[in-house]
Computed example of a mutant assay.
Amino acid sequence: MATLPITSIFAAFFAVALVVLSFQISVQRLKVGDMIGESADEVLRRRIRAQGNFIEYVPLGVMLLGLVEVQVAPSVAVIAIGMILAIGRGLHAIGMLSASGPVRGFGMIFTYLALLVSAGWLIATAIL
Rank of each mutant, 00 (worst) to 15 (best):
I36T: 11
P59K: 06
N53A: 02
G66D: 04
I127T: 14
S26V: 15
G120K: 03
D41R: 09
M1I: 09
L21H: 01
I87L: 02
Q71M: 10
R46M: 11
V72L: 13
A12R: 10
V78A: 03
A119H: 06
A15V: 12
L113A: 13
V19F: 15
V27L: 10
G88A: 03
G82I: 02
G120Q: 07
I123M: 07
R49V: 04
F54G: 00
Q71H: 06
E56A: 04
G61R: 01
R47G: 10
F23E: 11
L64A: 13
A114Q: 09
D34R: 11
L128D: 14
A119D: 09
A11H: 06
V32P: 05
M63Y: 07
Q51D: 06
I127C: 03
A119W: 06
I109G: 00
Y57P: 00
M1N: 11
V19E: 08
R89V: 01
T111N: 06
A93R: 05
Q24E: 09
L44Y: 09
V78K: 04
V72D: 15
E38Q: 14
L122A: 06
L116D: 08
D41N: 14
S100W: 11
K31Q: 12
L64E: 04
I87Q: 04
I87E: 01
F10H: 11
D41S: 03
A2Q: 12
S22T: 11
L116S: 08
G101I: 00
F110E: 02
F10N: 09
L21K: 00
G101L: 00
T7D: 04
F23G: 10
L21C: 02
I87C: 07
Q24P: 07
L67E: 03
K31G: 07
V43H: 07
L67G: 06
V103L: 08
V72Y: 14
Y112P: 08
S75T: 07
I123A: 08
P5D: 08
A50Q: 05
E69T: 07
I6G: 02
L115T: 08
T3M: 11
F106W: 13
T111D: 02
E38T: 12
F110K: 00
M1H: 15
W121V: 08
F110A: 10
A93G: 00
T7I: 01
E69A: 04
A93S: 07
L122R: 05
A2W: 12
V27K: 15
V70D: 14
A86I: 07
R45V: 14
Q71E: 12
G88T: 02
I94V: 13
S26N: 14
G95T: 03
L97I: 13
T111F: 01
D34H: 13
L4I: 05
P5Y: 12
E38Y: 15
E42N: 13
F54Q: 04
L128G: 14
V68W: 12
T7R: 06
S39F: 09
S118H: 12
R49D: 03
F13C: 14
S22N: 12
S39C: 10
Q24Y: 06
V72F: 15
L115Y: 10
A126N: 11
L18W: 06
I84R: 02
S100F: 09
